[in-house]
Simulated assay, not measured.
Amino acid sequence: MTDTQISIENPESLLATSVDEFQAILLEGVSRTFALTIPQLPEGLYSAVANAYLLCRIVDTVEDEVSLSVEQKKHFCSTFIEVVRTGKEAEIFARDLAPLLSVQTIPAEHVLIQLTPRVIAITHSFAPEQIDALLGCVETMAKGMPVYQGMDLHGGLATMQDMNEYCYYVAGCVGEMLAKLFCHYSPEINQHREQLLELSVSFGQGLQMTNILKDIWDDAQRGVCWLPQDIFTETGFDLKELSTSTDSPEFQLGLEHLISIAQGHLKDALTYTQMLPSHETGMRNFCLWALGMAVLTLNKIKQHLDFKDSNEVKITRKSVKQTILTTRVIGRSNFLLSLLFDLKSKNLVCKDWQYQANN
């Protein structure tokens, strides 16, 4: 049994660890991907970004908890905003929420909720500008995500704009927060603040759209669809008819359109990353690893438009390792990064989409 497993089984034992160790163990439990990428960040950013992710995960835990009613979710979300804002009553929040979590919530998230007071104490150890960035993200997520609770999402969202708004609430605002933290960390980066903030929303949307496309069938089994009907109206498919038995060229064409949109957002993500100083290799790696894995995932979806399970389009560990190695080798060169992105994403663009959209 590893130290991490021992700590997860004995939450109080984590209280004696250092801030970085405490957050690293929690991250490993709730997200191996971020447990891999966040440590790439420089020392002045690591703790704040790790804490930010844990705060977001607390909101996600509330939103995903099947035992909570819509009103309970709204209550805990609004309460958590005030906990983050003031740094007070985190113990009450944890005490009230923890017993309500079901077995469908993973053990590591149970622990995270129980240890909310220490997470919040760490939040309020940061500089005021950092706290403001974290609070802004939590407030946007915690106010925006409950809007979708109780909605009938069996037939998807109505429009692409609705999908954009959803992606902003769950990912775009996270991108904004990271951009603000990056700008606070580096005066050199702060010179490009406005453009980075704009691109960061697109970065977040590209990653979230990739996840939505990958998880179509997992979501469908829960009676949920995050795809926009207007895109599929153009191709002649009604999302209300979506099921794991769907084998429709019209549906697959709609997927191609969304893949093309996601590719455009990931291209913005590359531009964002290229604006970070080349000597900030840790920050670039943090961005490039996520970007690279998203491009590879979209390629798998494009190659297997008839997939019926997310495992069919999940990239391999070998691909993850290759992404890490490649970005470490060429990550400082904007020219090589552009060349590689164009090579890996050229098949993601739906060339006939504009024609069909206008005819």
Rank of each mutant, 00 (worst) to 15 (best):
P11C: 05
L14P: 10
L15N: 07
T17H: 12
D20F: 03
E21G: 01
I25C: 09
E28F: 13
E28W: 01
V30K: 08
T33N: 13
T33R: 11
A35C: 01
I38A: 04
I38D: 04
Q40D: 07
P42S: 10
E43N: 14
G44A: 12
Y46T: 15
Y46R: 15
L54S: 05
D64N: 13
L68H: 04
V70Y: 09
H75A: 10
T79M: 11
T86N: 04
E89F: 04
D96A: 11
D96H: 10
L97S: 01
S102G: 12
V103P: 01
V103T: 13
T105Y: 05
I106E: 10
P107R: 10
V111L: 10
V111T: 14
I113R: 12
P117V: 08
G136R: 00
C137L: 13
M141H: 12
G150H: 06
M151F: 08
M160T: 14
V170E: 05
A171H: 04
C173W: 05
L178H: 05
N190M: 06
R193E: 13
M209N: 14
I216H: 10
D219L: 04
D219Y: 07
C225L: 09
W226L: 14
P228E: 03
T235G: 09
G236Q: 02
K240F: 04
E241P: 06
S245G: 15
H257D: 15
I259P: 04
H265P: 09
E280G: 05
G282H: 00
L291V: 00
A294W: 08
N299P: 06
D309S: 14
T316Q: 15
K321Y: 09
Q322W: 14
T326C: 13
R332T: 09
N334D: 13
F335A: 11
L348A: 03
L348S: 04
V349K: 14
K351F: 09
W353P: 04
Q356E: 10
